[in-house]
Design a protein around this nucleic acid. Structure first.
Length: 367
DNA sequence: GAGACGTGGAG
DNA sequence: TCTCCAAGTCT
């Protein structure tokens, strides 16, 4: 039994032993993920940004496509923002893609195209906070910097029995514990990944598999029988709001009419099918009405967004700066939210899983 | 420090 | 159906 005091341990040898068993477990049990092949800082960086608040399962295909289209930091910096957003389409939190692109250009300008090694320089880049900086610098460069994400927070809360609701004091303890551990590791990047992997696969939020855990003998929560109750659940999320929107699918010569979302709106700059107010005109999509759009607000899941897709015809030509006609096959080259994919599916289009390109089995004749 | 920011899957 | 979440950052 290792005595855990305060943060991790007052005994450096015990901390080293803990690290060794954890990393050994990691090397035996880690999942084979595309960003774990090699330590290219660029690939580590892209993966860390994509994985923010996003499941591994969702990220894998996006990561593979993204690094195929933008194989290097230089390629990313040279790309147009719209092309970067297009590869991000459907992943959500599009600000991440904007930040990633902006940071790539800054790195080319200020760091000769190499991801910076100094913590302060990494933190100065847009989209990179304390967690992401620590992850990249430890995994790619082997620096002994701590990381605390949702997984690590859960593991350390249990290991060190850090109780209570989210607070700055609790955060401080967790970061301190993570720092103690990574300082005792032979390979900091592996230790950090081991903590995350453990949280993702063994030290689960509900029903942790304690018998499989390499830290089970040191875990204070388990010793106290509190592993199910630590950490305390986060506060209730905001209730969702049901929104109804009618979507106009306008076609001409086999092309679809898309509209670019305005600045300062959710998902600004992304392309979508025009929406029209529920109960709006039935005789076609009037250009005069296009400003009166249903707003898709955050915390509304699309399951609760009732979509009524209907054919519409244009009574006048829409302005070119914000509308365009797109061939279904070219849709994937435009930045669009997941809503576009849902609507395409609703009108009978199919997507090639690998290329992301859309086709219609039958000619598209909606109006 | 609370709230904004997307999405799809699990239970 | 509904709630909660999954490798956070920025304001």
């Amino acid at each position: 039994m290792i005595i855990i005091i305060g943060v991790v341990t007052a005994q450096p040898n015990a901390a080293r032993a803990l690290c060794r068993s954890l990393v050994a477990w990691y090397r035996r049990n880690r999942r084979d993920l595309p960003w774990r092949r090699g330590r290219d800082p660029y690939r580590v960086w892209v993966s860390e940004i994509m994985l923010q608040q996003t499941t591994v399962r969702a990220v894998v295909p996006y990561f593979e496509r993204f690094v195929r289209v933008f194989p290097s930091l230089q390629a990313l910096a040279a790309a147009r923002l719209d092309d970067v957003l297009a590869e991000w389409s459907g992943l959500g939190y599009y600000r991440r893609a904007r930040h990633l692109h902006e940071a790539a250009r800054l790195i080319v300008k200020q760091h000769r195209g190499r991801f910076p090694r100094r913590l302060e320089e990494a933190l100065a880049l847009p989209g990179i906070g304390r967690y992401t900086a620590g992850a990249i610098l430890s995994i790619a460069y082997g620096q002994p910097l701590p990381v605390v994400d949702g997984n690590v927070a859960r593991v350390l809360s249990r290991l060190c029995l850090v109780r209570g609701p989210r607070s700055s004091a609790r955060e401080k303890k967790l970061w301190s514990a993570a720092a103690d551990l990574v300082a005792a590791a032979d390979v900091p990047g592996d230790l950090n990944q081991a903590l995350m992997e453990l949280g993702a696969t063994v030290c689960a939020p509900f029903g942790p598999s304690c018998p499989k855990c390499p830290l089970r003998r040191a875990c204070r929560a388990r010793a106290a029988g509190l592993q199910e109750r630590v950490p305390s659940p986060r506060r209730l999320t905001r209730p969702t709001v049901a929104v109804r929107a009618d979507v106009a699918v306008v076609t001409r010569a086999g092309r679809l009419l898309l509209r670019r979302r305005p600045d300062q709106s959710l998902m600004h700059g992304l392309w979508e099918f025009p929406t029209i107010p529920s109960g709006g005109v039935d005789d076609g999509l009037r250009v005069e009405l296009r400003e009166s759009l249903a707003t898709i607000r955050h915390s509304i899941t699309y399951r609760r967004l009732e979509l009524r897709v209907r054919p519409a015809r244009l009574l006048s030509e829409p302005p070119r700066d914000r509308y365009r006609w797109v061939r279904p096959g070219d849709l994937r080259r435009l930045p669009a939210s997941s809503l576009v994919r849902k609507i395409m599916t609703a009108v009978g289009a199919r997507t090639d899983r690998r290329t992301g390109s859309w086709t219609f089995d039958r000619p598209l004749r909606l109006c």
